[in-house]
Amino acid sequence: MPTPLDRATQSRGPFFAFAAIVTAVAAWSIWGPSDIFPAEPDPTGDPENWSSSELRRWLNNRNLHPNPLATSAELLERVKANMRTPPRA
């Protein structure tokens, strides 16, 4: 005589419910909203007063790839040279 556990493991309903949940989560993660971690906005004001992380963010937003070993003075010089470059979309 089958037990309730045997009947639960033999039925197809729970399996298809679980498969539907996994499929829905996968579809949501692939095609759902893509801004899980929205990008920080560009720093504003005078670049002379920006921190080195703000200078790097400004350069990264324009695909200028700052050197990780660059000093703040080098980053500032590069930002000023490219100040009219619009941010990437």
Rank of each mutant, 00 (worst) to 15 (best):
residue 83 M to L: 10
residue 41 P to E: 15
residue 45 G to T: 03
residue 80 K to H: 14
residue 70 A to H: 07
residue 29 S to T: 11
residue 5 L to Q: 07
residue 40 E to P: 00
residue 61 N to V: 04
residue 55 L to M: 15
residue 65 H to R: 10
residue 7 R to E: 13
residue 16 F to T: 08
residue 14 P to T: 01
residue 23 T to M: 09
residue 6 D to R: 14
residue 11 S to M: 14
residue 59 L to Q: 07
residue 72 S to Y: 02
residue 78 R to E: 15
residue 16 F to D: 06
residue 67 N to T: 11
residue 23 T to A: 15
residue 77 E to A: 11
residue 1 M to Q: 10
residue 49 N to I: 08
residue 51 S to D: 15
residue 43 P to D: 09
residue 50 W to L: 10
residue 71 T to N: 03
residue 28 W to Q: 11
residue 73 A to F: 10
residue 43 P to C: 13
residue 75 L to A: 09
residue 68 P to V: 12
residue 14 P to N: 02
residue 75 L to E: 09
residue 8 A to M: 03
residue 17 A to E: 14
residue 33 P to S: 10
residue 36 I to K: 03
residue 78 R to Y: 15
residue 16 F to V: 14
residue 61 N to P: 04
residue 42 D to R: 00
residue 47 P to A: 12
residue 34 S to I: 15
residue 18 F to R: 00
residue 23 T to N: 01
residue 5 L to G: 00
residue 84 R to A: 10
residue 60 N to A: 03
residue 48 E to A: 09
residue 69 L to H: 06
residue 60 N to C: 05
residue 9 T to D: 01
residue 35 D to H: 11
residue 70 A to N: 08
residue 64 L to C: 04
residue 45 G to K: 02
residue 80 K to T: 06
residue 61 N to K: 09
residue 44 T to M: 07
residue 6 D to S: 11
residue 83 M to H: 06
residue 34 S to N: 10
residue 56 R to G: 03
residue 35 D to N: 11
residue 64 L to A: 02
residue 20 A to N: 09
residue 64 L to R: 07
residue 72 S to A: 13
residue 16 F to S: 07
residue 21 I to F: 15
residue 49 N to W: 10
residue 26 A to K: 03
residue 27 A to E: 07
residue 71 T to F: 08
residue 76 L to T: 14
residue 35 D to K: 10
residue 87 P to V: 13
residue 13 G to F: 07
residue 19 A to G: 12
residue 89 A to D: 00
residue 78 R to S: 14
residue 29 S to N: 09
residue 85 T to I: 04
residue 47 P to F: 14
residue 4 P to M: 08
residue 15 F to C: 01
residue 86 P to E: 13
residue 43 P to V: 14
residue 15 F to E: 04
residue 12 R to Q: 08
residue 60 N to S: 12
residue 58 W to F: 11
residue 59 L to K: 02
residue 4 P to F: 07
residue 52 S to I: 15
residue 63 N to L: 04
residue 58 W to I: 14
residue 48 E to Q: 01
residue 31 W to F: 11
residue 49 N to K: 09
residue 47 P to H: 04
residue 64 L to Q: 08
residue 63 N to Q: 05
residue 63 N to F: 01
residue 39 A to W: 02
residue 48 E to W: 02
residue 32 G to T: 11
residue 7 R to W: 06
residue 74 E to M: 04
residue 32 G to F: 05
residue 28 W to R: 05
residue 74 E to Q: 13
residue 48 E to D: 01
residue 20 A to E: 10
residue 36 I to L: 13
residue 88 R to T: 02
residue 18 F to K: 04
residue 67 N to A: 11
residue 60 N to D: 08
residue 67 N to Q: 04
residue 71 T to I: 07
residue 3 T to I: 00
